[in-house]
Design a protein around this nucleic acid. Sequence first.
RNA 1: GGACCGGUAGUUCAGCUGGUUAGAAUGCCGGCCUGUCACGCCGGAGGUCGCGGGUUCAAAUCCCGUCCGGUCCGCCA
Length: 593
Amino acid sequence: MRSHYCGAVTEELLDQEVTLCGWVNRRRDHGGVIFIDLRDREGLVQVVFDPDRAEIFEIAEHVRNEYVLRMTGRVRLRPEGTANPDLTSGKIEILGLELEVLNASETPPFQLDDTGVHDDLRLQYRYIDLRRDEMKNRMKMRSQVTRYIRSHLEEEGYWDIETPMLTKATPEGARDYLVPSRTHQGSFFALPQSPQLFKQLLMMSGMDRYYQIVRCFRDEDLRADRQPEFTQIDIETTFMDENAVMQAMEEMIRGLFKEILDVDLPNPFPRMDHSEAILRFGSDKPDLRIPLELVDLAEIMKDVEFKVFSGPANNPDGRIVVLRAPGGAELSRKQIDQYTEYVGRYGAKGLAWIKVNDVAGGRDGLQSPIVKFLPDDVLAALIEKTGAQSGDILFFGAGDTNTVNESMGALRVRLGHDLDMVDDAWQPLFVVNFPMFEKNSQGNWTALHHPFTAPSFDSAEALKADPGKALSRAYDMVLNGTELGGGSERIYKMDMQKAVFEILGISEEEADEKFGFLLNALKYGCPPHAGLAFGLDRLVMLMSGADSIRDVMAFPKTQTAACLLTSAPAPVSAKQLRELNLKLRKVEKAEAE
RNA sequence: GGACCGGUAGUUCAGCUGGUUAGAAUGCCGGCCUGUCACGCCGGAGGUCGCGGGUUCAAAUCCCGUCCGGUCCGCCA
C-alpha cells in the first residue's frame, strides 16, 4: 500500500517516486498551491499539490484535518530558503502526482496541537489523543523499555512464564477484583493482585529464573500513580540472596537508563536503612533530589516548659523535628497558613514556625509566636543544630511519631518544590532493613511487606520471641521519591512460615485453607529464592516525564475506575446474571438511611 | 468514607460584588490568495452556562442537592 513512512522520507530519496499513507496533519491552501503535512507514526512530510494537475488539485482542495490519504509523488528538494529545520524531512518535499482519499474525517473534537485538553475528553477520544506526538512518544518509549527488559532478562537466563489471570482471592493485601464462576456457582475467581505465589511455586518447580511482564489488579481507590489494572515487571530467582538480587536489578535499571535515555545512574545505588530514611526524610521512599532533612530535637526539647514540644520529646511513641527552609523567612502569613493546612491533611494538629531574620541577633533576631516559650540556650542550640542562616524559616513537627513523619516528610517534598530546590537529576536508592511487622490500630501485628518475606532472624523461635525486633530481608528500589519496585528474600522453610502466620494471627486452619497449596509445596524440596517486582507504568512515567501513569497507558481508567472510551463497567443482561446464579441487591437510597 | 479544585461556543478560557443581545482566542464554514509550514486577508455560523431544585422583579453569577473529571487523606505495596 505504501513504499515508505512519511517521517522516513529524506533527501536520500531525491527524485524517486514514493507512495505514502497517513493522516492530514494540516493543510495550507494558497489558492494556487496547496501544502499538506502528511503524518504517520514516524513523522511528518510536506506534500505539494499544484494546479497543473487539475484532477488531484481538486481533491486536495477538499481534504481536511485527519483525513486519511494515500498519495504517490516525487521527492524533490525544497526551493532555497524554504527548508524546515524542525522536520527530519524538512529539506525535501513531495510533489503530489496521485492522490486518493482513503477515508474522510469529521472535525476532531479537539485540536491535536492543543496541550490543555481536559482528561475526560482525551479519554473519551483516546484514539485521537494517542495520535499526538507526546502520547505516541510515550507509547514508543514504553515499548522500548519492555523490549530492553525482556532481552536483558532473557540474556541473563530468565524465562518468561505465564501465570493464571483467574485465580484465588487472597485474604491479605488489597481488595480483589472478583469473577463469578459459572461452572461452580456461588464461587469466585479473583484477578491476581500480583503473581506472587505462582512465581514462588515456579521457583519450587525448579524453573530457576523467571520473569513476566504481567497485568495486576487491585480494587482500591485511585491516584495519579495508581490504576486498577497496572503492569509489573515480575522477577524471581533461585539460590540468590538479597544482595545478589539487588545488584542484578540495579544493573538492569542502569542499563535501561543508559540505553533509552543515555543517562548514567550511580554505580552502585546507595542503600539506606528504612529507619534512617524515616529519621532523616520522614518517608520510606525519600526523594534524594531535595536537600532538606528533618532534624530530631528530642534532646534539645526534653526539658522545655512548652508541653507541645517537651511532651513528644519525652514520649517513646512521640517525635519532635524541625525542618529548615532556606530563604523561607519571606513566606507570607497566608503561605504559612497553607502549609499548616497541608500538614493538617496528614493529621498534624498545627505547624509551629520560627523566622530567622537575623541569626546573629539572638532572641531578637527571631520572629515567631512560640519563641517566648523557649529559653535562650534552647534557641541557641536550635540555631546551631539546624545550621540556620538569616532569611530561613524553621518549621516544627511535634506529636505522635507516625503523624510527624508523614506530615513533615510531605512538607519536606512540598517545600522542596515550592522553593525550587529539586535537583535536576536521577537519584535512585535501595531502602533496606524494613521492620518485619508493624502494629495496626487494633494492636495486632501485620506484615509490612507480605507474609512470605523472610525475616532477618534465622530461627522461628527467635522470631516469635520478639517480633517487633525483627527486620525483614526486603528491599525497595526508590527513584526520585517514587517506589519503583520492591521485593524480598522469601521464606522457604515450613517452621518459619508457620511462625509468621502465628504472629500475624492467622490460624492453622485459615492458613491451610488460603495458602495450603503453598505450604504443601514447602514440604517437597523448596529452594531458597528471592525476587522483586517493578511497576512498569511508574518506571515509564518517570522516564518519560509524565505526571500520571494514565499518560503512559494506552487506555487507562478514571479516578472512579471507569473507562470513558468503552463506558465500562456496564450492567449485564438478566440472562448473564442467571447463568452465573447471581442476583443484584436493590440499591434504594431511601431505605439505606 | 472525607477534603479541595474544575465543569460557560467544537476546544481552551474570561465573565461570577445578580441587571440590556453571555465575550476572546483557536477550531469550523464560505470567499480571495503560487512557497507556506501555528500561512495570510475578508466574511459568517456556532451556547440546555453539567443536571435538578430554591431565593429574587430578575440567576452563568447567590443557596441546597446531584452527576462528571482531577489532586489529595483514608485505603493501597
